[in-house]
């Protein structure tokens, strides 16, 4: 009923270029104060209503995760991370190369094959980039880029917010809290951005990272 297939070549020697492949080799995104890195994951976009027990059970059987209980929440275990994106949209991050296997397993685990069982899963691993921003200047870079209140009381670890970032849109998370033993800002953030905005976001962060 659905076209679900392996999008990764079986020949692992075939050259793969992630979203930031070119820009990261052209412009260095780090200095003494911050570090920006692209991290590769398998990305599966999920559209499903929370009330679809059949799907949520299959998801749990395969990943061990329940859908986030509240909006903006991120749930995770050792193998998977699941972001709330909108009331009926979620993003499942999996280890690189497992996206086809996981998609197939979830679809196969759905016991109720009644066509009324409604959901969508889609491999979007090429469509978006996962960026990790760390260093003492990370907080100031994020503050320059979004109007969203990133104070730890409003954006704690475990919360993911889809918001504006400069002139584009990202999924923003705090991934590491400040180390209270140091005076410097030592948080870490993750930013998920659509591929076609890669160069723009990379260059923007480099610009923002040049000064405090």
């Amino acid at each position: 009923m659905y076209n679900c297939y392996q999008q990764t070549p079986s020949d692992l020697s075939i050259k793969k270029q992630l979203s930031m492949y070119h820009i990261s080799t052209e412009i260095k995104a780090s200095n003494a104060h911050y570090l920006l890195e692209e991290v590769e994951y398998g990305h599966l976009n999920i559209r499903v209503g929370r009330e679809n027990r059949c799907f949520t059970q299959a998801l749990h059987d395969v990943t061990g995760l329940q859908l986030p209980k509240t909006s903006l929440q991120v749930v995770q275990n050792d193998e998977f991370r699941l972001y709330w994106i909108s009331p009926d949209e979620f993003l499942l991050l999996v280890a690189v190369g497992r996206e086809f296997e996981i998609e197939k397993k979830i679809r196969a685990n759905i016991k109720n094959t009644d066509s009324a069982n409604h959901y969508a899963i889609l491999n979007v691993s090429s469509a978006q980039a996962f960026l990790k921003l760390s260093g003492s200047r990370a907080q100031s870079i994020i503050k320059k880029s979004t109007a969203y209140d990133i104070h730890p009381s409003n954006l704690p670890v475990g919360k993911a917010v889809t918001t504006t970032f400069a002139k584009t849109q990202v999924i923003l998370c705090r991934t590491k809290e400040k180390d209270l033993n140091t005076t410097s800002n030592s948080e870490e953030y993750s930013i998920i951005v659509r591929r076609s905005f890669s160069d723009y976001v990379w260059r923007w962060i480099v610009d923002a990272g040049k000064r405090e």
């Binding site: 559209r47 969508a120 889609l122 691993s125 090429s126 469509a127 659509r194």
Partner: peptide
């Protein structure tokens, strides 16, 4: 209507 839409402009070259 049971239908879901997902943007995949950036997924495919």
């Amino acid at each position: 209507l049971d239908v879901y839409f997902t943007t995949v402009t950036d997924q495919w070259a």
